[in-house]
């Protein structure tokens, strides 16, 4: 089974970005890495407009944008640390707009293959301390270890 651990990237943006600019940038990274097909950016934007993915997580605003599985070439995860929060609409429509300072771009092919990964990610985003540490330089190691321990 392809593990997302083989295609995990953390990137940081210092500049202020609109949601559209951010999604276009990270979609481009996914395509350049060979993890998503051409056209992924548009699919990601449309999906986010229709079904927003902002989440009021403990101590942080986060978002987990993703598109349908057909766009994924290699399952992966791009974590974006934002120095300037980007506004996302809330998933499920409740709780008002989300000032996201962490974004997890999910590249999923077959969800049933990624249950361990998705559960581990949910545990991670439920933990205020871990989310905070993810913003530090050693954050990537922390996330990798968390996913490995969860058997991803």
């Amino acid at each position: 089974m392809l593990s997302v651990l083989n295609s995990l990237q953390i990137t940081r943006f210092e500049q202020a970005l609109s949601r559209r600019e951010l999604l276009l940038k990270i979609a481009e990274i996914a395509i350049e890495n060979g993890w998503a097909k051409e056209g992924f950016a548009q699919a990601l934007l449309e999906r986010e407009e229709k079904y927003p993915t902002g989440i009021h997580a403990p101590g942080s605003g986060i978002a987990i944008p993703h598109a349908d599985a057909e766009w994924t070439l290699t399952p992966g995860l791009i974590v974006v640390v934002l120095d300037q929060p980007v506004v996302f609409e809330p998933m499920g429509g409740q709780g008002g707009e989300v000032q996201a300072n962490l974004v997890f771009l999910l590249l999923i092919s077959n969800p049933d293959d990624h249950v361990a990964f998705l559960s581990a990610l949910a545990d991670f985003i439920s933990d205020a301390g871990k989310l905070h540490q993810l913003r530090q330089p050693e954050g990537v190691t922390l996330l990798l270890n968390h996913l490995k321990q969860a058997g991803v």
């Binding site: 999906r47 079904y51 599985a69 998933m91 969800p111 049933d112 998705l118 559960s119």
Partner: peptide, 15 residues
């Protein structure tokens, strides 16, 4: 149910 039936509904179903 979720928007695409791939990410969040998988998580929610497992839980």
């Amino acid at each position: 149910m979720c928007g695409s039936s791939i990410a969040t509904s998988t998580l929610a179903a497992v839980k």
